[in-house]
Amino acid sequence: MKMRRWAIALGVLLLGRKKRQPRFADRPRIVAPGAPDPRAEWVALLLLLCAAAAAVGFIVVYSFNHLAHQTQYLGLALGLAFAFVAAALIVVAKRLVVTEELEEDYPLSHPTTQEEVEQLVEESGDRLTRKRLLLTGAGAAAGAIGAALVVPALSLGPLLDTGGFYETPWRRGVRLVDEHGKPLLLDEIVRETFYTAYPQGADKELLGSPLVVVRFEPAQLHLPTQRRDWAPGGVVAYSKICTHAGCAVALFRKPTFPVVEPGPALICPCHYSTFDPTRAAKVIFGPAGRPLPQLPLAVDSGGVLRAAGNFSGPVGPAWSGVRSKAPRNPS
């Protein structure tokens, strides 16, 4: 008995169609009339049910604790749910509501009202005899208050103190260590191999810290005369931070067949600024405007590489005035 009533109810729900009594039949229609399309209604209904099923699928997939490719299934389920709704709406738009063509006037401007606004503003101010002066006062107040509200923004950073740009942790005697803090020994530096070094005991995450260290045959090096002793055993060290845009110079071009290939080079992967490590990191290609600053090296009695001073120039990307001071240590 109960089953039968349910079956009838379901049948009525699915198959029963009715035409609604027009309640506004006495008035002219606003929306253009159109013929019903029961098949399109079926399609839209089916699509909406599919959307619901996909959304339920999303919840089911979500409820698993460990499921391979869960992200993919989640995306698929939610994406499909939305896609089914989109399809249903397209069916609605194309088949189940009328597509009318309305005509409307483009809005115009309102010259009379414009003038009235002008007039009312002017009339409002005609009791004032020193309008200019008052406006100047208002301007002064607005400007000063505006400035007062902006000034606290200066706490963001040391606006005028650019001294920090010149600071590096390198000074005479600082040992070169690798990323694990192990000192670099001259004898362990292999020729034409790329090493990254840091100042012992200093913060590695400063632009002034990291170095590239490469060893050449001393005869391969063509350093300026005043830098002749900067490369003990043919080991040269440069700042690892590109002078163009501050990326790490992380690539080393090592010719495998030097007769036809270009010479060794340090290259920044960001914009391929290319520096010649045998010629004091001169820029040979790419956009960098300055060579990489060179760090003078020395070897102590234990064979450990140490800095023999600070860099030959300021480290990192350039700013106006970058060349005007030498790098120094933080005081």
Binding site: L74, G75, L78, G79, L80, F82, A83, V85, A86
Partner: peptide
């Protein structure tokens, strides 16, 4: 419909 289509494409891409 366009909104749901955009959402569908984005979540399908995202997944």
């Amino acid at each position: 419909g366009l909104f749901f289509a955009v959402a569908a494409v984005l979540f399908l891409l995202g997944g």
